[in-house]
Design a protein around this nucleic acid. Sequence first.
DNA 1: CCCCTGTCGCAATCAGCTCGCAATTGGGTA
DNA 2: TACCCAATTGCGAGCTGATTGCGACAGGGG
Lengths: 130, 130
Amino acid sequence: MTTARRQLLEALFEASAHATAEDLAATVQARSPDVHISTIYRNLDELERLGVIVHTHLGHGPASYHLASAPHGHLVCEVCGTTIEAPPELFAELGAHARRRFGFVIDPRHFAVLGRCEGCSGDTGGGTTT
Amino acid sequence: MTTARRQLLEALFEASAHATAEDLAATVQARSPDVHISTIYRNLDELERLGVIVHTHLGHGPASYHLASAPHGHLVCEVCGTTIEAPPELFAELGAHARRRFGFVIDPRHFAVLGRCEGCSGDTGGGTTT
DNA sequence: CCCCTGTCGCAATCAGCTCGCAATTGGGTA
DNA sequence: TACCCAATTGCGAGCTGATTGCGACAGGGG
């Protein structure tokens, strides 16, 4: 509707993946310096309510936003922070089991799976406490 | 070692599941009112480094802590907040696939799976935007 | 052109958590 | 038991991420 809203959408399209509210704010503010961060948050909220975008918590930091039209889960390395976009089918079986066993319908777009990426899964001298 | 630390452990044993730092602080402070919240955080941190406990992010709120000796994942309903403890085997296949496909070793104890529980998965008038 | 509704900009505020610092506490040693 | 060293504690300030209340403004309908 408004300029701020339109530019936020543009920023979302340009920021291909995992943009935080601050990232998006920076992009929007590059064009319209007056757009306040709270406006970004409010519009992000609105857009999410409309189902246009989804937000994900990739770890301890700020939430990431991306378009709902690119559904995927996330594999986040807790050592180096690498984020892998995982196709929804990776979660198909987990989803089926959760549903069968607990009647629980998972939302693979709205959570990150922590763990260790290929490079960090060797041994970091901490894990094997048996 | 110290009183604060010992009482924090006690609190962790008593608070069977999903205790937040503030919950634990309250429990500890019921006995030792002088124990400061920052001490709780520091000890929680230390205990986690030692592998005694793990913390999980169940959603938007504060992190939850529990003993590492009870490994499980979490299914959290994003509508009503219900938390289901999921046995690690629920994630076995996801883990195998992630490893095979991305070389990524998941940590089923350190993430919550958002979604909808049995009672909330009917239809809330939002989801089916296809 | 005016009014009305919704949105914006702003600063204050909140929640969750971390940090620096000085005093205290606990444990090991003699 | 007394002493000493280092780790730990209590405390408040501070930081990041996010939200809210409020007055001003903009844009669309009549």
